[in-house]
C-alpha cells in the first residue's frame, strides 16, 4: 500500500502547488512586452508538453520491461502512463492553438514542435484503438507494448524530419525573445508542478488498473 501513501502525499502537495502555480503565472510573472497577457499560456503549454514527454517515456520503458519480464504489472504501468501522456498531449494542442490565435493570428501553425506532438497524439490514440480490439489480456499487453516502443523511437525522427521540412517552408512568425529572471523562475515552478501532476495522475491510473485486475481475479475465485 506504498502507492496509496505516495498518491495521498502527492495529492496534498498538488493542493498547494497548483493554486500557487496559477497565482505565480497570472499575478507574479511580468506581462510580456510584445505578446501581452497571452504569453502566460506559455507556462502551461511548456509544462504540459514536458509532462506528456515524461509520461510517454514511462510508457516506452514499461513496454520494454513488459516484453522482457512478461509481467502484466508493466502493462498496467504502460497503459496508465500512455493515458496520462495522451491527456497532456491533448491539452498541449489546445493551449498551443489558444496561444497561436492572438500571437500568430492563426488557430493552427505547422510548427515542428506542435506537429511532433500532433503526430504523437495520433500514435497513442492508435495505441488505445488497438488495445480496444484485442480481448486476450496477455496479447493486448504484448501487442500494445510493441506500439509503445515503435511509437516512441519515432519521436526524434519525426522531430528532425518536421524541422527540416519547415526549414524549407520557413515560418512567417517567430517566437518572442528570452525570458527575464522572474519569468524563468515561474517557468521552473510551473514545470515542477506539472511533473508532479504527471506522476500523480500516472500513479492514480496505475493503481486503478491494478485494482481492476485484482477484482477480476477475485471474481474468478468466487466463480471457481
Amino acid at each position: 500500500m506504498k502507492t496509496n501513501r505516495t498518491i495521498s502525499i502527492l495529492f496534498f502537495l498538488l493542493l498547494v502547488m497548483m493554486p500557487l502555480d496559477f497565482y505565480l503565472i497570472f499575478k507574479v510573472a511580468p506581462t510580456e512586452r510584445i505578446m501581452g497577457d497571452v504569453q502566460r499560456i506559455f507556462y502551461l503549454h511548456v509544462s504540459l508538453a514536458s509532462g506528456a514527454f515524461l509520461a510517454f517515456t514511462c510508457t516506452f520503458v514499461s513496454s520494454i520491461l513488459f516484453l522482457w519480464k512478461k509481467n502484466l504489472i508493466w502493462d498496467s504501468a504502460a497503459s496508465a502512463s500512455a493515458e496520462t501522456g495522451l491527456l497532456f498531449a491533448t491539452l498541449v494542442l489546445i493551449t498551443g492553438s489558444l496561444w497561436a490565435r492572438p500571437i500568430w493570428n492563426v488557430w493552427w501553425t505547422w510548427d515542428p514542435r506542435l506537429l511532433t506532438v500532433l503526430i504523437l497524439w495520433f500514435i497513442y490514440v492508435g495505441y488505445f484503438l488497438l488495445r480496444g480490439g484485442i480481448a486476450d489480456r496477455f496479447k493486448k499487453a504484448q501487442y500494445s507494448a510493441v506500439i509503445g516502443i515503435i511509437g516512441y523511437i519515432d519521436i526524434p525522427v519525426i522531430r528532425y524530419a518536421t524541422k527540416w521540412w519547415k526549414s524549407i517552408h520557413p515560418l512567417l512568425t517567430r517566437e518572442g525573445g528570452g525570458l527575464n529572471p522572474v519569468m524563468k523562475n515561474v517557468m521552473f515552478f510551473s514545470l515542477t508542478t506539472f511533473l508532479v501532476l504527471t506522476v500523480f495522475l500516472f500513479l492514480f491510473r496505475f493503481r486503478l488498473a491494478r485494482i481492476e485486475e485484482r477484482l477480476q481475479k477475485l471474481k474468478k475465485l468466487t466463480e471457481d
Binding site: 504523437l120 488497438l130 484485442i134 511509437g151 519515432d154 524530419a161
Partner: peptide, 26 residues
C-alpha cells in the same frame, strides 16, 4: 499486428500513417 485484432486491417492506417510521417515527408 493489426490483423490480429478484431478490427482487422481497418486499424492499419491509424497506426501506420503517423509512424511513417518521416518517410512521407522525405
Amino acid at each position: 499486428l493489426t490483423t490480429a485484432s478484431r478490427y482487422g486491417e481497418v486499424l492499419l492506417p491509424f497506426l501506420y500513417l503517423p509512424v511513417v510521417v518521416p518517410i512521407i515527408l522525405g
